[in-house]
Amino acid sequence: MSRTIKLGAWPLLRHVVLLAGALVVLAPFIWMLSTASKPADEIYSSELHLIPHHFALWENLREAFAKADLWRYLLNGLIVTVSIFALQILIALPAAYALAKLRFLGRGPLFALVLFGILIPPQATAIPVFLLLHKLGALDSYAALVLPFTISVFGIFLMRQFFKTVPDDLIDAARMDGISEFGIVWRVMLPTAIPAVTAFGIFSVVAHWNDYFWPLIVLNSPQYYTPPLAVAHFRNAEAGTNYGPLMAAALVIIAPLVIAFLLAQRRFIEGITLTGLK
């Protein structure tokens, strides 16, 4: 590389500010990584150091897996997030198609209701939904974790906006070819909307993988615990908080999301920008 890069004062300053911002965001993760790699005596020692003197990540991981059934919690997380996402798509796509492309009485008010639904925070409806699940006898089960999130107004809104950009001719062509309206949703709209579905998938999976609030209030039995609850479980262990294994467990729990993101990074960002532009 013979080309020299000249940095003016302003670009330099910009990069310094950006780096500082990145550091603030990354600091907890770095600290988590550091703590997970330290033996107990180093964690509790008064001096602060980032690099552990004695590298104890494997011991901490072994202890974390020994203390709790981490595989089980990861599997729970997978079951819950995949079920939620699949059901959300199952409901949001036909709804969005109807709102975007079919002409029927009351479409405007219905769409206004969808928009209104986005404004309602999930915490506001938590207690009624909790009572409903209680009456149904569905508390403390996978159903309690999945059912309240199957209708995503955000998903309906996002997909509807995307479907608006699909030319009407394509739908008419499908009708001429003999594809039914539901067939159009799954065979024509879904494949063209893959970028939007991907973007929505990221939001949905990340939100429900990391959700702490809802599993905490509907679950009692540890066998249904989702990953965030499992981490909290470590903190409440009777012998007092053991930060090394706790951080190691946290590491295990965020790992699937980080790995998935790294693997599909380009597609993810493509999806988000695509839906943003259109």
Binding site: P167, D169, L170, D172, A173, A174, R175, M176, D177
Partner: peptide, 15 residues
């Protein structure tokens, strides 16, 4: 589809 007509659209409307 039951009318057994075929249509060619302005935007081609290919899948």
């Amino acid at each position: 589809s039951q009318r057994n007509l075929a249509m060619v659209f302005q935007s081609y409307a290919l899948y």
